[in-house]
Every structure is written in structure tokens, then in C-alpha cells.
């Protein structure tokens, strides 16, 4: 290209085309090929991390996304229904009924601590009487050697201790543990339901409050009548009716915003 004066022109494009002429020599390409071959072989031998193939595998699964998603949702639903158990409102009261910390060694106290109780294996206190209820054992503990090691260390109940509720519950738990360990089956289902011994109706255990009041009143009456009247306290107690017993209570009344006293 020439300008108007007949001199050659050089534009910025011409200068940049000079860069095209910058080329390495043949020896450079020989070395380049050798290095590239070595890198290629190293890349073939090198084990690539598993996540590099993950997108490709996910892409291959993308065509089955609908049935796979439906199956996953169904499985999650089934598992949720299978493991669903309504919460027991007063489950923490089920365990403190046993006063094992006084007699049992530390491992047993830790075992029956409220935090260790599995909700699925817990029996509600309203269903089972307190003295007949069992310490809920977790299935993991029942099948493990830890329980087998801990249970024999329980102090043997002897003498008057047999009559204490804590001693009875320890003995019952020990029997349950022995039963569960003896029949432990390492199959699919490892959980075991706690065994109830001598189930009793809750109402059958409740004593009539009027009976207690009557006996208390009779005792007080006997103490006051010592030396004045030989009437046996049993007869006095029989003669007292419920109306008379609760008469003092009926003298006080409260209804709405008013409180009444009867003299």
C-alpha cells in the first residue's frame, strides 16, 4: 500500500500481522510433541476422581427421573409411616418411678436415665401401673454385651429389700433382660417389645379416698376418747357416713366471684 506521496503505508493491522511471523523453530515442536505424549499417557494412567464422572451418570439417569422420583417419594413415605409413633405426653414420668439410683450401680442408672429411653419402646404410664411397669430397654442395649455385663452386677435382692418397689422393679428388669438376651435373634428386626409382667387395671390399684379419711378420723377419735368410752374405733368408723365426713368440707364453698362460709 502506498500513500499519496508514493511512500509505503503501515497500518496497525500490518504491525499486528508481524506477530503472525513469530514462530518457534522445528526443535521446539519436537520437544513439544514429546512432552505432549508424556502428558497424554499420564492423563490416561491417572485415575480421575469419582465426581468427574458424576454429571455423565446423572445425565444418563435424567431420562428416568419421573419413575425414580416417584419411587423415592414412595419409599420415604413408607419409611415415615413405618417409624411413626405418636409422642407420649408424659414419657419422662415413666422412668423416675424407679428409684434405682439408690441401689443400682452407676451404669444402670445411666441406662435408665430419661434421655436414654427410646420413645418407640416406651410404655405410657397411663397404660401400665407404676409398680408393674418396666424399665424400657433400648434394643441396642438388649442385644449388646453391655447389658450382659451390667445386669449381673445388680445387687441381689435379699430379706426385706424384696418388698420394696425399687427392688421389685430391678428384679423384673433383670428377668426381662435375661429373657431378651436369651432369645436374642440377630435378624432384621432387632427391636424387642418390653414384656409386661402381671398387668393390672389402673383403677384396681386406686384406693377409695373416703376409706382413708374414715380410718384417719377413727384413729383421731380413738385417741381423744381414751379412758372415757370403751367404744371400739371400728364401730365408730362404721357409723360415720360419707356425708358426715365431708360435712366440714361442704361448709366452705366457692362459686363464681363469691366465697361462702357456713357456720
Amino acid at each position: 500500500m502506498m500513500n499519496q506521496k508514493g511512500q509505503p503505508t503501515v497500518s496497525i493491522e500490518d504491525l499486528l500481522r508481524l506477530k503472525r511471523a513469530e514462530r518457534p523453530d522445528a526443535a521446539f515442536w519436537t520437544q513439544f510433541d514429546q512432552e505432549l505424549r508424556a502428558k497424554q499417557l499420564a492423563a490416561l494412567v491417572e485415575k480421575r476422581p469419582w465426581w468427574t464422572a458424576l454429571p455423565r451418570k446423572l445425565r444418563s439417569l435424567a431420562r428416568h427421573q419421573l419413575p425414580l422420583g416417584a419411587t423415592a417419594v414412595l419409599a420415604i413415605t413408607l419409611v415415615s409411616l413405618r417409624d411413626y409413633q405418636p409422642l407420649v405426653p408424659a414419657r419422662r414420668q415413666a422412668v423416675p418411678a424407679f428409684d434405682t439410683s439408690a441401689q443400682a450401680p452407676a451404669p444402670l442408672a445411666a441406662m435408665v436415665a430419661p434421655d436414654a429411653v427410646d420413645t418407640a419402646d416406651t410404655v405410657a404410664p397411663s397404660d401400665v401401673p407404676e409398680r408393674d411397669s418396666l424399665v424400657p430397654l433400648r434394643a441396642e442395649f438388649a442385644n449388646s454385651s453391655e447389658v450382659a455385663r451390667m445386669v449381673p452386677t445388680l445387687p441381689a435382692a435379699a430379706g426385706n429389700d424384696d418388698e420394696r418397689p425399687s427392688a421389685r422393679s430391678i428384679a423384673e428388669n433383670r428377668a426381662v433382660a435375661e429373657v431378651m438376651l436369651g432369645t436374642a435373634n440377630p435378624g432384621f428386626e432387632t427391636r424387642a417389645m418390653p414384656v409386661r409382667l402381671n398387668p393390672r387395671e389402673p383403677l384396681a390399684q386406686m384406693s377409695n379416698p373416703s376409706e382413708a379419711h374414715r380410718s384417719r378420723f377413727a384413729t383421731a377419735f380413738a385417741a381423744a376418747a381414751i379412758g372415757t368410752s370403751p367404744v371400739p374405733t371400728a364401730r365408730v368408723a362404721r357409723r360415720l357416713s360419707d356425708e358426715q365426713l365431708y360435712d366440714t368440707i361442704h361448709r366452705f364453698g366457692a362459686s363464681g366471684n363469691s366465697v361462702s362460709f357456713k357456720f
Binding site: P8, D14, L15, R17, L18, A21, E22
Partner: peptide, 17 residues
């Protein structure tokens, strides 16, 4: 820098100009 190939026509013309 790589060596400039003097036989390249464009390079030769530019350098000559």
C-alpha cells in the same frame, strides 16, 4: 520473544516499509 520469520511476505513488506 520468538524470532521473526523474515521469509513471511507480510513481515518482509512491513519491515521493508
Amino acid at each position: 520473544l520468538e524470532t521473526l520469520d523474515a521469509d513471511e511476505p507480510v513481515a518482509r513488506d512491513v519491515v521493508a516499509a
